[in-house]
Amino acid sequence: MRRRSRGGTATEPRGSALYEVLKGIDFERRELLDKPRGVGLFDLVKDKGGSYRCYACTLCERTCPVDCIEIDYCPEFEELPFDLEAERAAALATLPGESCGANSACVVGEQPAGFVPEIDMKKFDAVVAGIRSGTGLVQALHSTQEAYGYLPRVALENIAGEMGLPLSRVFGVASFYGQFRLVPVGKHVIDVCMGTACHVAGAPLVVEAFSQELEIPVGGTTPDGLFTLQTVNCVGSCALAPVVRLGDDETIGRVGPNEARRLVRRLRKAEVPA
């Protein structure tokens, strides 16, 4: 295994200082292979005609994790090298219907087949009231989930409308946070704690036991809509590890795989109409 030389890189300045040293040198790109990081510079790609392909959309500047790209005015560029509006219009024209940013059907998707409960829009009034009183998007999603147990697409659309945000933005937030669910949950939600203490005490075996007994993967819901199996990062009851939370109220400590199977069987039995 080749080991990269790192001697001194932590103390020597990089980036702009190196640029001063290297700016006159015409680098052959392939010479940079196998060199330590920091000796090369990023350049803009030119088309055959000699014009820059970059149209200063600033995306690279905004997403660069270490903020090493800065877009600035440069006298060497010809003025208006790129007609941004025309390009954008052309790009939109090539994608008929919904394109990114407006209403991203490609990511929101349709509800997967399976257990889908009725959606009572009356419950949504509380969410709207919350939004109008000035709570943020995350809080609105929380109260939606409290009302429905998950985030139905129609609710996301309404939140987007109410807050004046693109649906893609609402969906982006909803899918970022681990606690928000985009699919309906069953009657009994089983949260298995996967914190460190629970892991050490054997939580993976417990999850597996639940998964086998319920015949669903983590995150899944049984076809009869009775059980949903989830994991949670830490419920903070580490002294009782491994911990399982049933619904919002009940927390059960010191659960092994055998207890897990029995719990499912007990809950199933209680559901069978006498």
Binding site: G136, V138, Q139, L141, H142, F176, Y177, G178, Q179, F180, V232, N233
Partner: peptide, 8 residues
């Protein structure tokens, strides 16, 4: 009070 939503 602002509640998080499960992102470390």
């Amino acid at each position: 009070i602002n509640q998080g939503a499960g992102a470390f």
